[in-house]
Amino acid sequence: MKKLTYFPGCSAHGTSEEFDKTVKMVMTSLDVQMEEIPDWNCCGATSAHTMSESLAYALPLRNLVLAEKLDNSTMAIPCASCYQRLKVTKVHMDDNPELCKEINSTVVEDGIYQGKVDVKSMLQYCFEDVGLDAIKAKVTKSLAGMKLACYYGCLLTRPKAITNFDSPEYPMSMDKIVEALGAKATEFDYKTECCGASFSISNTEVVINLTGQILEMAKESGADAIVVACPLCQSNLDMRQPDIEKHLGKKIDLPIFYFTQLMALAFGMPEKDLMFSKHIVPVEGALANIGKIVPEPEKVKKTRKAVEAESEAE
């Protein structure tokens, strides 16, 4: 049995409850025991680092200090934004002991940060620590027939110097995971474009514009659903999809799954436990494709990868 420290993040109790729940189901099934950081606090997200340098480090640092009291070497975080704030803080504190000492003085609980817990995103943990073989071994209901565009967003792989995980331009870890589940990952060029993130409320116009492009590209890649690993990406693409369709003047109709929901589904867990009812865009159409394997339709548009491969062949 593996042990893991778990930082759920605020959205786990809110808009991304289904992510939190399916992470727990999948980890239990993969024989990973998760320990939640006791009385964790918000990481500060975009707002803290926008407004104040000290708060931007202080809020995540408290969680890092509390995490060190648990006896695990690794911490995994489902939310991409929380992950980035904690990882940035870890890297900067490790590099700058003087600043670290100052920031540590704002943490009222006992404990001096030592930098002994590794911070990973849940996607990274599944890919690196659990591994594709262990995931494949758990699949009892193959997702063959599903065509999925894997959308990583901006924070899971960037900046490279901080995350040190996968490619910042064309990552493949989630693609490989969904393929281990039996589904087909489409060639999708907008994998790491930003969805507009926290502008969802304060600058909706920008989000509608950016997510519109992402959804259109996913549709063009031939996908019948999008897979994500970030609560903000999910709610921007899902909850705002009716508005985006109005803006684009066409139907998109792409459900947005968390990768752990699909893992749980492929592991044979009952559909009713995966909280599909919370989705704004209905999932039934995409799920009905499971088991239906149709011959590859002709590509509508050549993707960057295909063009590169062709020019290499020439």
Binding site: G14, D39, S52, S54, A58, S235, S277, K278, I280
Partner: peptide
């Protein structure tokens, strides 16, 4: 209706620790 956005929040037990942190961080700034 779908529960996408829940009505409540599960606050921290020690929210006071964060209020104290805000004060200390402001001083630092």
């Amino acid at each position: 209706l779908k529960g996408k956005i829940p009505l409540g929040v599960k606050p921290m037990k020690s929210a006071k620790a964060i209020q104290r942190m805000y004060k200390l961080a402001e001083k630092l700034e």
